[in-house]
Simulated scan of single mutants.
Amino acid sequence: MSTDVTTAGDTGLLDTLQHEVAVFARRAEQTRLGGVGQVRNSMDRAAYLLLNRLDKEGPMGVKALAGSMGIDSSTVTRQVAPLVDTGLVKRTSHPEDGRAVVLQLSPRGQARLDEVRSSRRQLMAELTHDWAQEERETFCALLTRFNDALSARQAAHGVTGSEPAATTS
Rank of each mutant, 00 (worst) to 15 (best):
residue 55 D to S: 11
residue 75 T to Y: 14
residue 145 R to E: 03
residue 113 L to R: 00
residue 52 N to F: 00
residue 148 D to V: 01
residue 133 Q to W: 01
residue 93 S to A: 14
residue 70 G to C: 05
residue 76 V to L: 06
residue 131 W to Q: 01
residue 40 R to T: 07
residue 125 A to N: 11
residue 54 L to G: 10
residue 146 F to R: 01
residue 145 R to I: 00
residue 65 L to V: 04
residue 30 Q to E: 14
residue 136 R to G: 02
residue 76 V to Y: 11
residue 40 R to K: 12
residue 139 F to W: 05
residue 76 V to H: 09
residue 40 R to N: 09
residue 44 D to L: 04
residue 80 V to K: 06
residue 67 G to N: 04
residue 121 R to I: 00
residue 139 F to C: 02
residue 123 L to M: 13
residue 75 T to R: 14
residue 142 L to S: 05
residue 87 G to K: 06
residue 78 R to W: 05
residue 135 E to R: 03
residue 91 R to Q: 14
residue 71 I to R: 11
residue 55 D to C: 06
residue 110 Q to L: 14
residue 143 L to P: 01
residue 147 N to F: 04
residue 101 V to Q: 14
residue 84 V to Q: 09
residue 105 L to R: 07
residue 35 G to Y: 08
residue 78 R to L: 12
residue 102 V to C: 04
residue 92 T to H: 07
residue 71 I to V: 15
residue 85 D to R: 15
residue 63 K to I: 09
residue 138 T to S: 02
residue 67 G to R: 04
residue 54 L to C: 11
residue 72 D to G: 15
residue 83 L to N: 15
residue 73 S to W: 04
residue 53 R to K: 12
residue 118 S to C: 01
residue 48 Y to R: 15
residue 64 A to K: 13
residue 133 Q to A: 05
residue 120 R to H: 06
residue 72 D to A: 13
residue 40 R to I: 00
residue 82 P to D: 09
residue 104 Q to T: 05
residue 51 L to N: 07
residue 125 A to R: 06
residue 50 L to P: 05
residue 111 A to R: 10
residue 77 T to K: 15
residue 34 G to E: 13
residue 134 E to D: 08
residue 80 V to T: 13
residue 52 N to W: 00
residue 120 R to E: 15
residue 129 H to W: 01
residue 39 V to P: 03
residue 70 G to Y: 02
residue 80 V to A: 15
residue 83 L to Q: 14
residue 48 Y to L: 15
residue 121 R to P: 03
residue 80 V to G: 10
residue 55 D to F: 08
residue 125 A to D: 12
residue 98 G to N: 13
residue 94 H to W: 10
residue 138 T to P: 01
residue 32 R to A: 13
residue 71 I to L: 11
residue 130 D to S: 14
residue 117 R to T: 07
residue 70 G to A: 05
residue 52 N to V: 03
residue 106 S to R: 03
residue 100 A to H: 07
residue 56 K to C: 03
residue 88 L to T: 08
residue 63 K to Q: 11
residue 32 R to T: 12
residue 30 Q to Y: 10
residue 98 G to D: 13
residue 38 Q to A: 14
residue 89 V to P: 05
residue 67 G to V: 00
residue 44 D to E: 08
residue 45 R to I: 10
residue 119 S to H: 04
residue 109 G to I: 04
residue 136 R to V: 05
residue 85 D to H: 10
residue 47 A to R: 08
residue 118 S to W: 00
residue 94 H to A: 13
residue 65 L to C: 00
residue 34 G to L: 13
residue 118 S to I: 01
residue 52 N to C: 07
residue 94 H to F: 07
residue 63 K to N: 10
residue 76 V to C: 10
residue 74 S to F: 07
residue 44 D to G: 09
residue 51 L to R: 09
residue 143 L to A: 11
residue 93 S to L: 03
residue 53 R to V: 04
